[in-house]
Structure formats: structure tokens, C-alpha cells
Amino acid sequence: AVAVAAGVVFALTGGDGKPVAKPEAEPPAVVPMVPHKPPPTPAPKPPAPPAPVPPRAKPVPRPPKPAPPEPRPKPVPKPPAPKPVPKPTPPQPKPTPPPVPPPPPATVYQVNRLQYGTFGDHTKPEVRLGSSSWLWQRWGLAIDGKPYGHGVTVHARSAVTIDLNRKCSSYDAFAGVDDLTLGLGAVRFSVYGDRTLLWRSPVMHGGDPAVPVHADLTGHRAIRLVVDPHTPFGSVALADWAKSVINCR
């Protein structure tokens, strides 16, 4: 700063060559001493926080299973070509079957008209001579005062065997004690097909009305008409098979 001030003075004086007395150097200014303050006592540092606990490692998620591949759509088959619709055939008339002839009418054989097998031709029912009891073939008889046009009468103990000799369907009659017995005796009537019992009556006394008889003869080759006495004095009774008939084909 002093040198600069001298330069300025020299310029103002015109620079006559005279040496300019150097200004005395001023003593340096004394800087006032500021009392030194001691540095402030640093505040005590707080205790260091505890070291943070490292967080638990998160489980690494497993990679998701790959999705199954989408099924490829099956190719849709082409619908078959429609079949040509056949032309409707006009219905043809069915032939009419010939009419079935009706079965021949049943033939009815009255037992009071049957022949014995010894004299017959074996084409219709016949009385078996060697296996039959006494048989009275009658026209007109009465049971409990009721008349019957035909029938057969037997003793209280009897058995009459009839060979059918053809296919027959039934035997029908009315059974009872004949009025000739005058109300005496008690009997029971039975009808057998071969050896099978087909029909049986209750005990019939003299003076009782006749009971209807019906026996199926399908599959049988012979029938047997049996009368048994019910009491020791029953043998005196005369038993009637009134309106006794066999129905055959």
C-alpha cells in the first residue's frame, strides 16, 4: 500500500527526478487482543443405539408350478353327408288269412245209452264190463220228488268204470238217493279220472235234494263213478246219477 501511494505522489509531482523521501513506515497497527474463549464443552454424545437386528430373511417363494398346457381342441368331425331319403313305398295290402274254422261242436254222450266195451267199436265212451258193478240204465227217475228224464241207478256200494276212447272235456250229472228207497240209507258219491279224485259229494240221505256234479276230464282216458254207503244200513239205498252225460270233442 505504501508503494502504491508513492507511485501516485510521483505522478502528481511530475516526476522531476528528485528522490522522494520514502515515507516512514508506520508501525503496524496493533490488533486488539480478544480474550480467547475456551471452546464449549461438547455435550455428551448419546449412547449409540443398539445395532439393528437384521430382519429375518423372507422365505423365497417357490416358483409356481407351470400351468398344464391347454389341451388342443380336437378337430370337429365334419357331419356326414345326409343320406338320400328313400321315397315312401305305398303300403301293400296284407293278404287276408283264411278264416279259422270253428272247433267242431262238442258231442254229448248220455251214460244211459252207452254200450259195453265188449260190443262197442272203441271210438266213443263205453262201459268197461269186467270192472263195473251192476248198472241200471234208465229213462225217468226221481230224487226228492223231482223227476229227471234219464240217468243210471246203482247200489249203495258200487263202482262203474267208463273208457272214454277219445278226448273228453267234462262229466256232468245230478247225484242223490232214488225215491224208490223210501227215504232210507245215506251214501257219498265220488268221481275219479283214472286214479285221481275229481269230485266228491257230501253225505246224501234219502229224501235229500240232488246235488250237481261237474268234473273236468281233460287229459284223462277213463272215469270211475263210485258210491259208498255212509251207515251200516246204507247198502239198502239205490243211488242215482241223474242226467248223467259225458262231453267230448
Results as ranks from 00 to 15, higher is better:
A1K: 01
A3S: 11
G7T: 03
V9H: 01
F10G: 05
L12S: 05
L12R: 05
T13K: 08
G17L: 07
G17P: 03
K18L: 08
P23W: 00
E24I: 02
P28I: 02
P28E: 06
K45A: 11
P49Y: 09
A51T: 10
P55A: 15
V60A: 15
V60W: 12
A67G: 08
A67T: 14
P68N: 10
R72G: 04
K74T: 09
V76K: 14
P77E: 10
P79K: 14
P79D: 14
P84M: 11
P84C: 06
P86R: 14
K94I: 15
P99R: 05
P99N: 06
V100S: 03
P101L: 07
P102C: 02
A106G: 11
V108T: 14
Q110C: 04
R113E: 15
Y116D: 09
G117R: 02
G120I: 07
D121R: 12
H122L: 15
H122P: 03
P125K: 05
R138T: 06
W139M: 08
W139T: 09
A142C: 04
G145F: 01
Y148A: 03
Y148N: 01
G149M: 01
G149T: 08
S158W: 08
N165F: 02
R166W: 08
R166K: 11
S169W: 13
Y171H: 15
D172V: 13
D172K: 13
D179L: 07
T181A: 14
A186N: 07
V187P: 01
V187K: 01
S190T: 12
S190N: 12
L197F: 03
L198V: 09
W199M: 07
V203C: 08
V203L: 13
D208E: 10
H214T: 13
G219L: 09
I223L: 14
V227G: 00
V227K: 00
V227L: 02
D228Q: 06
D228A: 06
H230C: 09
T231P: 05
A237D: 03
A239F: 04
S244Y: 00
V245M: 04
I246A: 11
I246L: 13
